[in-house]
Computed example of a mutant assay.
Amino acid sequence: MRLPSSHPASAIGAIVTTESQWTTPPAGSVFGAQARFDRSKVSIAGEGRDFVRVGDEGTRSTFTFCPERGATVYYVMAGHEESIAIPVGAFADPSFPAPTFSVYEERMHSWVTMPRDIEHMR
């Protein structure tokens, strides 16, 4: 997958998903963080396998994962096909910008904290 050359700056927004059915228990994590991009600015190459998951509100998302490593490479939500979400950990960049928007906070573990200036889904 090739990303825009200035990937963090071109992200639509990094999203923190806390305790959704997408992260606990299927992924075994207490939260996930994704960066969203305009899909037309991301080039994808290589083999991937798709898995469709239905979220809490019934939104269908197609997750594409690497068949060799089993890791999610990206996902696309039905109704929002113009954007692509990529797990922040896939960038292996500790300087990647902090999340700007948080969802599912009502389910987060008591020890998880969000950045002070993050926008919260209401």
Rank of each mutant, 00 (worst) to 15 (best):
E105W: 04
E82L: 08
T59K: 07
V52Y: 09
G13Q: 11
T24Q: 14
I15D: 03
R53Y: 15
Y74S: 09
T64W: 06
R39N: 04
R2E: 11
P4C: 03
L3R: 13
S102D: 05
F101T: 04
R69S: 14
M77F: 02
D50Y: 09
S43V: 11
E81V: 01
V52L: 10
P8Y: 02
G48M: 13
P115Q: 03
R60M: 11
A11S: 13
E57W: 11
Y104P: 01
M121D: 10
V52S: 14
E68Y: 07
G55K: 07
W111Q: 01
V52W: 14
G89C: 09
V54C: 02
A45C: 03
S6T: 08
H109I: 09
R49N: 07
S102E: 07
S6F: 07
R116P: 11
F65I: 10
R49A: 03
G46N: 09
E119M: 13
A14V: 11
R2L: 07
H80C: 04
M108P: 00
F65H: 12
P115G: 03
Y75P: 00
A78H: 08
V112Y: 14
H80I: 00
F31C: 04
P94Y: 04
V30W: 05
P94F: 06
R60Q: 14
D38M: 08
E106P: 00
E81S: 00
M1G: 07
M114K: 08
T62A: 09
E82K: 11
E19I: 00
R53Q: 15
G55C: 12
I44G: 05
T113F: 00
C66D: 15
G89D: 10
P8C: 07
S5Q: 10
A85W: 04
A90F: 06
Y75G: 03
V16M: 15
H80M: 04
P115D: 05
M77Y: 00
E105C: 08
Y75D: 01
T113D: 07
C66H: 08
A71L: 13
E57N: 13
T72V: 14
Q21K: 11
V73H: 06
R60A: 15
E81A: 06
V88P: 00
P26H: 12
I44W: 10
S102G: 05
A9D: 14
M1F: 10
G48N: 01
T62L: 15
T113V: 06
T100V: 15
A71R: 12
